[in-house]
Design a binder for these strands. Structure first.
Length: 739
DNA sequence: CGCAACTGGACCTCG
DNA sequence: TCCAGTTGCG
């Protein structure tokens, strides 16, 4: 045990060994948060303060849960396998799934209920609007989806939503209809998993008491990312902090709260402190990850946010390398520079997997990928389409879902005519109308149909029935294999000329099933019901969506969004696209809340770097198929000058004034190709100004000329003033000066 | 009904 | 730029 506590610093030690009381650990980036969390659990168990079954650990990502479990197994030796495994570790969604499966009857669900991921949910909503004959222009499915999820995350069922206007009232009605549809189809969306579990515990006293008594210690990772409902869920489990209830040990960093857009409430940290009368608030501020310059930059950025709980990271590692900043002409130039720097790093001994390329949004990866590819540098992209989200995999899963639960209309509609089997839109429409009148699922309505639709649809139903019958006694991987064959998916993709990858993915699905079979405990219950394991597998597919698919194994440069990088660290980090409108994102600039979240995101990005940090931006960039001219990000201005080193031709210029794009620059050591003229520089007679030029306006401040029209006295230019917006100005009126 | 060609809006982040 | 949804033809 002395081993366990060795090498902890004073604050970490204090946090790990706190008495059984509620505690809030404010853990800065790189301060050993995960270590504290796992050591705390191991210490509690090893000192006999709690049985392994009495511990509940909640994380946000499957990755974090897995890592925690792995660490625990090594920390709890001997009976370890057993004791570490009897600790409940999982994500909110995963744990809720587990609870709902165990108590499905009390929760009003069939045992084999299915889980909708957000794409499925959207499809379900579109289908709902169609059957109700609702104009989806007036009620955009996406908006409705957000509305419904927001209500659920606030813990509100339709009757509890306050609607003051007709529009909202109508949306609430649709929320009601959506719920009815889900219930009819035995499907549950992500938010529903949480809400259902919460309501189950709130209403069912025996179940609530059982878990309240059981979980003596509830530990929460990334607490700043909890939403309202998740907080209430935790509160319920910990019996509202009453005497005799379990202890809540929450670890979080308000400065790293970057999920407001999906309902996270940083305010939960303050509420927790107040409502649970938390006396143990411990700050972990010593950073073991980054050099001083990087930390100073991070601190200087985040200090611009208001309403922080307050924290200042420090290190004893020394300043290290300056932060390098590069200004490129175009996004392609930017990418070329990144690749060159990577080549230098690799030559000097940094391994590729210790290098990360971060960006604000996935769309930015393409340019980078292109340059990496041409340079022959192995890379791995995280994000974008994940394995279980791929079209062909979803199709296969839809067949599997119909086997487990024929009432799943989303799955039914997805594959009823895929591969095509002569069931057209007309037949499906007839079926949907009939299902509506019978108030039954599509599948169960089929026998009631007559005529041609009845015939072809009955054939499809027979296909699914056969699949169910023939797979009843098959092990999971064989089951999947069988379905791929009989459904015709395999032969469909065999013919398809671009189907090779898709075929491989389908085979990969069989592998995934094998792995799942191997990992899942062989409990008798699962084997008793033939398709129970299948349902578990499908839940796994929805909840985990698979690691972001990438070539495994190879030593490759890592590409991902800043969001995806949270919790990770790298020797060298490149953060590209530091431009107003991109980062901070244009949709977030308008309100302060949004901007502060962007700043936290920036903070997260910067603190990923251990040794070297490279920041870059481009004067022009292709976005949505057109060239855009952006100002450099305000976050760059927030980094103290002494920490940075400006590269590129503009390196010698004064920092704030900028010098605009005046003609062509000689590329520095062949840093850019001159083959293509940067569009920004195409000259035009605009009274001395050029498109792409940075100018200053008395009222709106600094901006970039984006486009122009007219000429002579009528010449107008469109200028992006960043925070002040996009404006058309008459050259003869506006007093512009070159900035 | 199936397929190909076309058009318009969207991509910000995610479990 | 890309994708989804629509249109129009065989």
């Amino acid at each position: 045990m002395s081993d366990l506590l060795a090498n902890l610093n004073a604050e970490q030690l204090q946090a790990v060994t706190l008495p059984p009381q509620h505690a809030l650990i404010l853990a800065g980036a790189g301060s050993g948060k995960t270590r504290v969390l796992t050591t705390r659990i191991a210490w509690l168990v090893q000192t006999g303060q709690v049985d392994p079954q009495g511990v509940l650990a909640v994380t946000f990502t499957n990755k974090a849960a897995k890592e925690m479990l792995a660490r625990l197994s090594t920390m709890l030796p001997l009976a370890s396998g057993r004791s570490a495994r009897s600790i409940w570790v999982g994500t909110f969604h995963g744990l809720c799934n587990r609870l709902l499966r165990a108590h499905h009857r009390d929760a009003g669900l069939p045992r084999l209920f299915q889980i909708l991921d957000s794409a499925d949910q959207l499809a379900a909503i579109k289908r709902l609007l169609k059957t109700l004959n609702i104009d989806d222009e007036k009620f955009p499915p996406r908006d409705l989806q957000h509305f419904i999820n927001a209500q659920k995350e606030a813990g509100l069922r339709p009757h509890a939503v306050e609607a003051w206007d007709d529009y909202t009232r109508r949306r609430v009605e649709l929320y009601t209809e959506y719920e009815a549809q889900c219930q009819r189809e035995s499907v549950v969306d992500f938010a529903e998993l949480l809400l259902r579990t919460f309501e189950l515990m709130e209403r069912n006293e025996p179940i609530r008491k059982h878990y309240q008594r059981r979980f003596r210690h509830i530990l929460v990772d990334e607490f700043q990312d909890t939403n309202r409902l998740q907080y209430r869920w935790l509160k319920l489990l910990a019996d509202n902090g009453k005497e005799g209830g379990g202890c809540l040990f929450c670890v979080g960093d308000d400065d790293q709260s970057i999920y407001r857009f999906r309902g996270a409430e940083v305010g939960n940290m303050r509420d927790f402190e107040r409502e649970f009368k938390v006396r143990n608030v411990i700050r972990l501020e010593q950073n073991y990850r980054s050099y001083g310059n990087i930390l100073d930059a991070a601190n200087a950025i985040i200090v611009n946010n208001s309403a922080r709980l307050g924290k200042n990271l420090w290190t004893d590692r020394g300043g290290g390398e300056p932060i390098r900043i590069y200004e490129a002409f175009t996004d392609a130039d930017e990418a070329r520079w990144v690749v060159e720097e990577i080549q230098t790093l690799v030559r000097d001994g940094t391994s590729r997997s210790d290098i990360a390329l971060l960006y604000r949004s996935n769309a930015q990866s393409r340019v980078l990928e292109h340059q990496l590819f041409s340079a022959g540098i192995p890379y791995r992209v995280y994000g974008g389409l994940r394995f279980f989200e791929r079209q062909e995999v979803k199709h296969a899963l839809a067949y599997l879902r119909l086997i487990a639960n024929p009432d799943d209309d989303t799955a039914f509609a997805r594959v009823v005519n895929f591969p095509t089997r002569g069931i057209g839109a007309r037949s499906v429409e007839v079926l949907q109308d009939a299902a509506r009148t019978w108030n039954a699922s599509l599948y169960s309505t089929v026998p009631h149909l007559s005529g041609k639709p009845g015939m072809v649809l009955a054939q499809f139903v027979r296909l699914v029935e056969d699949m169910r019958r023939d797979t009843r006694s098959l092990p999971l991987p064989e089951l999947v294999d069988h379905v791929l064959e009989v459904s015709g998916l395999r032969s469909h993709y065999k013919v398809d000329k671009e189907g090779q990858d898709r075929l491989e993915n389908l085979d990969e699905l069989i592998n995934a099933a094998s792995n799942f079979l191997a990992e899942s405990a062989q409990d008798a219950e699962a084997l008793a019901e033939p398709h129970a394991l299948l349902a578990d597998f499908l839940a796994h597919a929805s909840l985990e969506a698979g690691d972001h698919q990438a070539d495994a194994g190879q030593d490759a440069v890592q590409l991902m969004t800043v969001h995806a990088a949270k919790g990770l660290e790298f020797d060298a980090v490149f953060l590209s696209g530091l431009e107003e409108g991109l980062f901070p994102h244009e949709n977030s600039i308008l309100e302060n809340e949004g901007l502060e979240e962007e700043r936290r995101l920036m903070y997260v990005a910067v603190t990923r770097a251990r040794e070297r940090l490279y920041l870059s931006f481009a004067q022009s960039r292709m976005l949505h198929g057109q060239t855009r001219y952006n100002l450099r990000s305000r976050f760059l201005e927030e980094i103290p000058e002494g920490l940075t080193k400006w590269l590129s031709v503009q390196g010698s210029r004064t920092r704030v004034g900028g010098m605009g794009v005046g003609g062509y620059f000689q590329p520095a050591k062949g840093a850019f190709s001159t083959k293509k003229k940067p569009e920004a520089v195409v000259s035009r007679d605009l009274g001395g100004f050029r498109i792409g030029q940075t100018v200053r306006h008395a009222r709106f401040g600094q901006g970039v000329i984006v486009s122009a029209e007219g000429g002579g006295a009528d010449a107008r230019v469109q200028i992006n003033f960043g925070p002040a917006g996009l404006k058309w100005l008459l050259l003869s009126v506006a007093k512009l000066e070159a900035a």
